[in-house]
Design a protein around this nucleic acid. Structure first.
Lengths: 145, 145
DNA sequence: GTGATTGCAAACTGTTTGCATTTTG
DNA sequence: CAAAATGCAAACAGTTTGCAATCAC
């Protein structure tokens, strides 16, 4: 995260704690993850503050809001271009920095003004592959996203 | 959808109505959309039945569960490989059938056993571009996913 | 000082579950 | 007839909102 874009953000201790937690964090945490971590330093922290801060950061392009995990949103402080490897067992998300040529022929654009793209790769991470993941695999059968 | 994979599914009138609604549907409806549409024919339809049916269809690879729209899941009866164009204003999702070469170098796989991938293209659809989308654009600022 | 932010609780949206009843194969 | 599905309500999970008190700039 570059501090350059933090204009207009009032840097309260709570926000600084959230920023510190996110800085360099490659776990793509959910709002609940962030709340849990930051609550240790701020026992009075509320979800409202977490969501409020995440929205402010998102609006300043300081975090990306990922819609990858079904029910909940996850947040990514890495804003330079990258793609994701997603484990279909444990939902772990790993960043990859491979570049692809993803041009869409005019004829296929359906009138869209395309601004960007993102690739999700689905698979099973080493951890889930090596440890017993059979049960989980059964319960998640068919869930690809 | 190919009927071939519908093995073991008890075809109740409710399920047939859901299947009929989904067949050829390119709107990527949410469970609520499906419920609303099918309720017209089945006033007693319940959400439990919609979710139950969607899970059964998903487990048989008859629909894809899309985690594209933040809070809610959307369903895609098109199971042959394709990618999506997503309008960041109205969340409309359009299918595209372009094929890409998306191989990930071994060194970047982080131990993952990669099974598939999917590309999301973000942009603004013609409708949102031509009609006043300024207000919506402001309220959604920064939301890319 | 003033407008933005916090924290709390309540409200909401979307999804899941338990269970008695009904239905399909 | 047995196993599975339905419908309803209640329970859940995640997110948002209203508002008085507080705080950063």
């Amino acid at each position: 995260m570059k501090d350059a874009k933090l204009t207009g953000l009032k840097l309260t201790p709570q926000r600084l704690a959230i920023l510190e937690y996110l800085s360099g964090n490659r776990e793509h945490p959910s709002a609940a993850d962030i709340y849990a971590a930051v609550s240790e330093k701020f026992p009075t922290m509320s979800f409202a503050t977490v969501y409020n801060t995440l929205k402010a950061l998102r609006d300043r392009d300081h975090v990306l809001e990922l819609a990858i995990d079904g029910g909940k949103r996850r947040y990514d402080p890495e804003t330079i271009r990258h793609h994701h490897l997603i484990c279909t067992e444990c939902r772990k998300i790993v960043d990859i920095y491979v570049e692809f040529d993803l041009s869409v022929p005019e004829a296929e654009r359906d009138g869209f003004d395309i601004a960007g793209n993102h690739v999700d790769f689905y698979g099973v991470c080493r951890n889930c592959r090596e440890s017993g993941s059979e049960q989980k695999a059964a319960s998640r059968k068919g869930r690809k996203t």
